[in-house]
Design a protein around this nucleic acid. Structure first.
Length: 466
RNA sequence: GCGUCGGUGGCGGAGUGGUCAAUCGCAUCAGACUGUAAAUCUGACGGGCUUAGCCCUACGCAGGUUCAAAUCCUGCCCGGCGCACCA
């Protein structure tokens, strides 16, 4: 990627909610870096939740931004907020097994990074990740399985020596813990950084109540007379402490990126860093992508998302189902279409000069091409036209196996095309289940004699092979 | 701990002994119209069946009263609010 002024300009404005970079510190570093005049790593922090590994276009917008920074020589650090996620968790386990947790997180990260790898570079030079329990847990939080631990050291004469200690002792736990810590094992650090109550209070001693309750969300709840718990108040500060520790561990934390809903928390990081005499991070927030319903933000739990692992046809179709009003939001956040072109499009649309459907098809094609390649995108478009504009059946559809004479209702139920037999019967009554030629299946007991293609409603297609 | 109000389908929220698989709104699904958009209209929306009907399981959990309970009683669990205790 070229690092000309235009690229940089686009980087800080496209899809961006706010870019807070007092004194232009970050921008300057970036410029220097691109000219080879800045030798330190430029660290960009991004908080993730790997327990939800389905990455959708909303995340992708941020990842694509991160990728652009990587291309300019920055290093992206994913912060896994496992510790802070546990605080709000009511299951309330008060002891932890770090080695097991580490394994779980690593397994999650593996699937997560597999998807992220489609967008980001994940080699060590420009990428790293760390979990925040690495500095938030204290030795007393831990539970040990072992009975005893051997600790290596030197004797008075400087010869190698070791002693056996009880695993449940403070020193034993410390030894076991340090053997699982990412700072040591993944990042090969000698010195370990931890937050302590002393350090936390020091920081808290510089933050006022008024500063904290500024936050919109807190204000709203105060207005409604809802309770505000102390751990919730502390949350932004803990997130800030994460930035501080990334700076300690990686040498700096120059920029934090997140959704527009994270701006307050990210700015808290600046405060915490300043209090602790660290260079403050800059903050870049990315606009939220609307979901396929065009109302809420895209999220898995609302079911209005397009996953980057969605099949081409599916992805194309989902983009087409997005309301017209969201098209520009998608163009900005989900494609590389130059902004000048997007602006032109906006003008044309405002004048009502063009068929919006065609713009949306272009959008869908571009998005599919991004994740599946141009060829697949073309194919998805062709299939879409065949299936929906001409009322046929797409070429590539899900195929399921079935026994001869097996009832259609059972096959569809078994493969999740209908939720229950009752629903199947309803759909038959409504004339929603059709053969490939478009004629309706009238008999709810219809059984298969040979291979067949069926439509359930207008969006579900299946080829059944006997 | 005491008092009090509450826990109903994916969500919100009616119902306070039979006519309740449960009014209504949202969400969802299907049909019509379309551009698989929006808007609009129509219908469905616990599960199952040999389907003008029938059966099963459900209104926090467990018992009980009754011919009959989401609805009444008892115990338990969970949540909101008020008060007290502790500090």
């Amino acid at each position: 990627m070229k690092s000309d002024a235009n690229t940089i300009e686009e980087l800080f404005s496209r899809g961006v909610g706010e870019f807070i970079d007092p004194g232009g510190v970050f921008k300057e570093k970036l410029l220097k870096k691109s000219k080879g005049e800045y030798s330190n790593d430029i660290i960009i922090k991004f908080g993730i939740d790997p327990t939800q590994p389905d990455i959708h276009l909303g995340h992708a917008a941020v990842f694509r931004k991160l990728r652009q920074f990587q291309d300019l020589g920055c290093k992206v650090v994913f912060l896994v907020g496992d510790f802070t996620a546990n605080i709000g968790d009511p299951t309330g386990k008060n002891k932890v097994r770090p080695s097991i947790e580490q394994k779980e997180i690593e397994a999650n990260m593996a699937t997560y990074l597999k998807q992220v790898g489609k967008i980001l570079q994940t080699d060590e030079e420009v990428f790293s990740w760390i979990k925040n329990s690495d500095w938030f847990y204290s030795v007393s939080d831990l539970m040990v399985e072992e009975k005893s631990v051997r600790i290596q050291g030197k004797d008075e004469k400087g010869n190698d020596s070791s002693i056996q200690v009880s695993a449940n002792s403070h020193i034993g736990k410390a030894a076991l813990y340090s053997a699982t810590r990412m700072q040591k094992t993944h990042l090969k650090k000698e010195e370990m950084h931890d937050i302590t109550l002393r350090g936390l209070l020091w920081t808290l001693g510089h933050i006022t109540h008024a500063r904290l309750i500024e936050r919109d969300m807190f204000q709203e709840r105060i207005k409604k007379g809802e309770e505000l718990y102390m751990h919730e108040m502390l949350y932004p500060i803990l997130q800030g402490i994460d930035s501080l520790f990334i700076a300690k561990i990686y040498g700096s934390c120059d920029l934090e990126i997140g959704g527009t809903d994270q701006v307050f928390n990210m700015l808290m990081g600046r405060d915490v860093m300043k209090i602790n005499k660290r260079e403050q991070q800059s903050v870049l927030s990315i606009k939220l992508l609307e979901g396929t319903d065009g109302k809420e933000k895209m999220s898995k739990s609302l079911g209005n998302y397009i996953a980057i692992t969605d099949e081409p046809n599916d992805m194309y179709g989902k983009v087409m189902s997005v309301p017209d009003a969201s098209i520009m939001n998608y163009f900005e956040l989900c494609t590389y279409t130059p902004r000048s072109e997007i602006e032109k499009m906006k003008n044309i649309i405002e004048k009502g000069g063009t068929n919006l459907r065609d713009k949306k098809m272009e959008l869908a094609r571009r998005i599919v091409a991004l994740y599946h390649g141009e060829e697949q995108a073309q194919k998805a478009q062709k299939d879409f036209i065949a299936a929906f504009q001409k009322g046929g059946v797409p070429e590539e559809i899900e195929e399921v196996a079935a026994e001869k004479k097996e009832k259609l209702s059972d096959i569809l139920l078994k493969n999740g095309f209908v939720r229950s037999k009752t629903e199947f019967r309803r759909l038959i009554k409504e004339g929603a289940i059709k053969f490939a030629d478009g004629s309706k299946v009238e008999d709810e007991h219809y059984a298969l004699e040979e291979d067949g293609v069926f439509k359930v409603g207008k969006k579900r297609f299946v080829r059944i092979v006997v």
